[in-house]
């Protein structure tokens, strides 16, 4: 006979696994319900526009400032390495490709999860805790089509927009460091970039990534809020989980998407 206590780690593992799977299923169910109740988000577009304001416009400052610094640092670090091989003109390519392919979508998604995702989770969680969602239900208004779906679509719209802004501002930051500060030729900076950045394979793929990240981050934030226990502690834990889960999912998805895009 094995002692019961020896089995405890296994039981804990099993419990954690079942819970994860259950949450995955519940999340997928909410995603599906959101999709089929999306009609109102577009029929009454101002509902969605309002959320684009809160998720997108309110995230502009953090996105623009981060992008600027990321671009500048990329240029500094890149120059440091490239000049050893006498190819400092390739600095434009390095900055642009790094931003457009990877850093733009990923860093935007991480910042989005921290800025907008947490706000969404906390808002939905508090709406639930203060019975606002139940009140809506009792008024024969579906919270999914009135509260969840507009926020979802707003996130899906805002993320790619933030991503292209991130890339553009980042490249601008890189330009400011490379050209006026270091003295790389401006013509070489832009022409090398243009010769090596492909519209479809680099830029469009980056945008596709950010759309996928937008879906993932917003849905995770919404689900965590919707699923949060209606207490102060429950909401705060859910907010933390939003950041952790979103970040991990974004990085994982990035790997999957990149490997798909490279093999194609």
């Amino acid at each position: 006979m094995i002692k019961r206590s020896r089995l405890r780690p296994l039981r804990t593992l099993g419990h954690a696994f079942i819970k994860r799977i259950w949450r995955l299923g519940a999340g997928a169910r909410l995603f599906w319900l959101t999709l089929i109740s999306s009609g109102e988000s577009f029929r009454r577009l101002h509902l969605t526009i309002r959320e684009v304001y809160f998720t997108g416009v309110m995230s502009l400052i953090i996105i623009v400032v981060s992008a600027f610094f990321v671009g500048m640092v990329l240029a500094l670090q890149g120059y440091n390495t490239l000049q050893r091989y006498g190819s400092s003109e390739a600095i434009g390519v390095l900055v642009a490709l790094a931003l457009v392919r990877e850093l733009g979508p990923v860093v935007t998604a991480l910042l989005f999860a921290g800025r907008a995702g947490t706000a969404i989770t906390a808002e939905i969680g508090l709406m639930k805790a203060t019975e606002q969602l139940s009140a809506m239900e009792m008024m024969a208004v579906s919270p999914i089509s009135r509260v969840i779906a507009p926020r979802f679509w707003a996130g899906v719209i805002a993320m790619p927009v933030l991503n292209v802004l991130f890339c553009m501002v980042g490249i601008l930051g890189g330009y400011l460091v490379a050209v006026p500060l270091i003295g790389v030729d401006a013509g070489a900076f832009w022409s090398q970039m243009q010769a090596n950045v492909d519209w479809r394979l680099d830029i469009l793929n980056g945008v596709i990534k950010s759309v996928v990240f937008g879906i993932a981050c917003t849905m995770i934030a919404l689900f965590e809020g919707y699923d949060a226990p209606p207490t102060a502690e429950g909401v705060s834990r859910a907010t933390t989980r939003t950041v952790v889960t979103s970040s991990l999912v974004v990085l994982g998805l990035d790997f999957v998407l990149t490997s798909f895009m490279i093999s194609l």
Partner: peptide, 26 residues
């Protein structure tokens, strides 16, 4: 709100065009 969102989306489109024309080889 409408105005800000309009500016936001316009900025996004402008940035995408900028990426396509100035950065990419479209």
């Amino acid at each position: 709100i409408d105005l800000w969102v309009g500016i936001f989306v316009a900025l996004g489109v402008a940035a995408l065009l900028g990426l396509a024309m100035k950065v990419g080889n479209l």
